[in-house]
């Protein structure tokens, strides 16, 4: 883990505790405050001011691209490269090709969304940093990385303790 950052993490044992702590810690002005939870938490995005993911835009653009590719592909195959008369219809009959175009739109959009998600999350990863092994089952964590503009190890430690963290750990992420 060469590019991992030092962090200070506080561990809470309840969702409500974490959310209360996140609100108060955010008010201290940290700009890279992060949270880890075993399941999605309502409202945590707003509290931590996490920007929206831009994956939907990738989906949209790739969907449009899939639509364009499908249109070109059906025309090239059925009307240009190897014209084939089916049922006396015009060579390039849009109605017959819309299912193909539609499926290609969905295929491009869906696969690129999943692909973008995997790349942006840095997956696959076989040595994830472990702050606390129980964070995937019943514990919740807040942490501040060392490149935060207000990073001050002692202050953060005492703040997390004050906010009811059951444990404060120095770790890497």
């Amino acid at each position: 883990m060469s590019n991992s950052k030092k962090i200070i993490a506080g561990i809470w044992d309840s969702e409500a505790g974490l959310i209360e702590a996140a609100k108060k810690a955010k008010a201290q002005g940290f700009d890279k405050l992060e949270a880890i939870s075993p399941y999605p938490l309502h409202g945590i995005d707003e509290i931590l001011e996490i920007p929206r993911s831009f994956i939907p835009y990738i989906t949209f653009v790739m969907g449009l691209l899939g639509c364009a590719v499908g249109t070109w592909f059906t025309w090239y195959v059925a009307a240009y490269d190897w014209p084939l008369n089916i049922g006396g219809k015009p060579m390039w009959s849009l109605a017959a090709f819309i299912p193909v175009i539609f499926e290609l739109t969905i295929l491009f959009a869906a696969l690129s969304s999943v692909g973008a998600m995997i790349v942006l999350n840095g997956l696959p990863k076989n040595n994830p940093p472990i702050i606390h092994p129980d964070l995937t089952s019943h514990l919740f964590a807040l942490f501040v990385p060392e490149d935060d503009k207000n990073f001050n190890a002692e202050k953060i430690e005492s703040l997390f303790k004050e906010l009811g963290a059951q444990e404060v750990k120095h770790s890497e992420f």
Binding site: S14, E15, A16, I19, H42, G43
Partner: peptide, 8 residues
Amino acid sequence: MSHAKKEK
């Protein structure tokens, strides 16, 4: 939802 539960 345990945070900020609204009163009716």
